[in-house]
Every structure is written in structure tokens, then in C-alpha cells.
């Protein structure tokens, strides 16, 4: 890979992001197991602590701030599992990435009326 950052507005999941987001992604990956989903629901902060998330990472997860989670190295395929515990629609997550209103996002990006 020469310089993936040259593609505008496109954070490729490279070594830096992978290293940076490892704990958050590991926490999210664990939500593939029902017992971990139950623990997340029962006491979210304690659950995040058990994966060693920083204060900044915890705040982003607890606010369901999808833009911030990705900025901190979260990879969508992992953090999407948070939306399985606390339902969010994919296009809402997309709109949050683009920092657009959902209706505008559907219309302008996806061409939906």
C-alpha cells in the first residue's frame, strides 16, 4: 500500500488503526456471544472496563458515537455488534459517519426518495 490516506474521506483499516482500536474492537467482537451481550446490557461501563477501554473510547461507545468510534480505530464490522445489543439501523450508522441527517443521507448519498 503506498499511501491509503490519499483517498479522500476514507479511513482504511491499516496497521495504525488496527493497533489503536484493538481493545474496542475486541470488546465489540465479544458481543458475538450471548453471555457477553447479557453482561454488556447488565452493566455496560463495567463490561467496557473489563476490556481496558480508555475513558475516551468508553465515552464514544456509551454515546453510540459511530463517527468517534471509527476515528478511534473502531472497525465498523466489529462495532456493528453494538447495534445488535442496542439496535440501530445501518443507514443511521452511515449517516453518523458522514455527519449528516438520516433523511439527507438517504436522499443525497443513497439516492432514495
Amino acid at each position: 500500500m503506498s499511501d491509503p490516506t490519499q483517498i479522500p474521506e476514507t479511513p482504511l483499516f491499516d496497521r495504525e488503526r488496527s493497533k489503536q482500536g484493538y481493545r474496542m474492537n475486541k470488546m465489540a467482537m465479544s458481543l458475538g456471544k450471548p453471555e457477553n451481550r447479557a453482561a454488556f446490557k447488565a452493566d455496560e461501563e463495567a463490561f467496557l472496563d473489563s476490556y481496558g477501554l480508555s475513558a475516551e473510547e468508553k465515552a464514544a461507545v456509551m454515546a453510540r458515537d459511530w463517527h468517534r468510534m471509527v476515528a478511534l480505530g473502531g472497525n465498523l464490522f466489529f462495532i456493528l455488534k453494538i447495534a445488535a445489543v442496542d439496535p440501530a439501523v445501518m443507514t443511521e450508522i452511515g449517516a453518523a459517519q458522514a455527519q449528516m441527517e438520516h433523511a439527507d443521507f438517504l436522499k443525497q448519498r443513497l439516492g432514495k426518495e
Binding site: 479522500p8 474521506e9 476514507t10 479511513p11 483499516f13 471509527v70 472497525n75 465498523l76 445501518m90 443507514t91 450508522i93 452511515g94 449517516a95 459517519q97 458522514a98 455527519q99 449528516m100 443521507f105 443525497q108 448519498r109 443513497l110 439516492g111
Partner: peptide, 11 residues
């Protein structure tokens, strides 16, 4: 498709 970053929703 693009799911991440501010170009999310790119088709």
C-alpha cells in the same frame, strides 16, 4: 459501498 468515514454511503 463505503460504510466508514465521512464518504460513507458512497455508491
Amino acid at each position: 459501498h463505503q460504510l466508514q468515514g465521512s464518504r460513507a454511503g458512497f455508491i
